[in-house]
């Protein structure tokens, strides 16, 4: 695979029926490209967590994905409220999700730690009132 494959997605706000569509599409693409199943799973889990966060915390956003021969880089950005204390947010169990989100099966405060676990590199840039940019890299 010499060339770089680039995909861009819109992540609509608060639309739970389509949340995860971008991750699903990327997962299918990696299957088609013949990437190793354990790498696909790690990528899918990390991206899905970030995508769900953009929907439930970030008022929706965008996903930019680049796949080259040896890695995938996923940038999920939103212009939501940002994360005030990132160290705190990275802790297992910390969540500001409202009850309505818990009823949907999310909001356990496990997403960011889970991203960290599955990504080879995780970079989070966030500013209160401006938004959040999460960059996930998985090496094949």
């Amino acid at each position: 695979m010499g060339q770089v494959i680039i995909r861009d997605f819109e992540i609509p706000a608060n639309d739970f029926t389509v949340a995860g569509e971008a991750s699903s599409t990327v997962r299918k693409l990696l299957v088609q490209l013949g990437v190793a199943p354990d790498k696909i799973k790690r990528t899918a889990i990390a991206m899905y967590e970030a995508e769900i966060n953009a929907v439930i915390h970030g008022h929706g956003g965008k996903a930019h994905v680049e796949i080259s021969g040896d890695k995938i880089t996923i940038v999920i950005s939103d212009e939501g409220p940002g994360i005030e204390d990132l160290d705190l947010a990275m802790q297992e169990g910390y969540s500001t999700a409202p009850d309505s989100i818990r009823e949907m099966g999310f909001g356990a405060g496990m997403g960011l730690p889970n991203m960290k676990k599955h990504a080879d590199e995780l970079d989070i840039r966030t500013e209160k009132g401006k938004g959040t940019v999460v960059t996930i890299t998985v090496y094949f």
Binding site: F16, A19, G20, R27, I52
Partner: peptide
């Protein structure tokens, strides 16, 4: 096995193979 019924259950299952 789950008592939760919404589309995210299916997407979660998909991501988890």
């Amino acid at each position: 096995l789950t008592g939760l019924v919404n589309p995210q259950v299916i997407r979660t299952a998909e991501m988890m193979d």
